[in-house]
Simulated scan of single mutants.
Amino acid sequence: MEIRLVQGDITEQDVDAVVNAANSSLLGGGGVDGAIHRRGGPEILQECRALRASHYGAGLPTGQAVATTAGRLPARWVIHTVGPVHSAAEDRSELLASCYRESLRVADELGAATVAFPAISTGIYGWPMDDGARIALSTVRRASTSVVEVRFVLFDAAAHAAFERSLG
């Protein structure tokens, strides 16, 4: 598998699947989640509402992943995953790693060859960027997957630099 780092906008990635750093409601929010819902259009929200009405009445649990259409995005699918909120008092790194593993598992089920990830949990959920990059890259490298390209799409230069250090 090839791992690429890109500084830019995840909603502009021409890949099979874009991973959304969602909140458990699956109904949109801020950051990456809001951007994906805004650019992808109402089709994504419609499928998310259907998921809430059927399998995820209480919301998508942290560390799990589920797919919907990508609506108006250049991707075919959006894989929604809920990252953990960082805690100095509790080690939640396994939940963060699970987001990456579960997203790749769903990508394999879909037949996706190319997947774009954001830096999950490093925004409003407060995960330190260097540690988030380390967990993301080590988890993806160890994953058993048919995905041929994983693209980490980092919003700014600082995030890109943190991932470059961890990719080393």
Rank of each mutant, 00 (worst) to 15 (best):
A88I: 07
G126S: 07
Q64D: 14
Q64M: 14
C99R: 07
T114F: 07
E149D: 05
Y56D: 11
A112L: 13
L110W: 07
R72D: 14
S54K: 13
V115K: 01
V153I: 02
H37Q: 14
R141F: 11
P84G: 02
D108C: 05
A21T: 01
G29Y: 06
Q64A: 13
W127T: 08
L110Q: 11
G132Y: 00
T69Q: 11
I79K: 08
A143N: 09
N23A: 13
A133G: 08
A112C: 14
A53G: 15
W127Q: 03
T122C: 15
Q46N: 10
P74F: 11
G28A: 06
P128M: 06
R38D: 15
R151L: 15
E94R: 14
T139P: 09
E43T: 02
P118C: 12
Q64K: 08
S144F: 00
G34N: 07
D130I: 00
R142G: 14
A35M: 06
L45M: 13
P42G: 06
L60I: 08
L73V: 00
G28F: 06
R92H: 14
N20H: 05
A67G: 13
T62E: 15
L60R: 03
A58W: 03
L154N: 15
T62F: 04
G132W: 00
A67V: 06
L95G: 15
V32P: 01
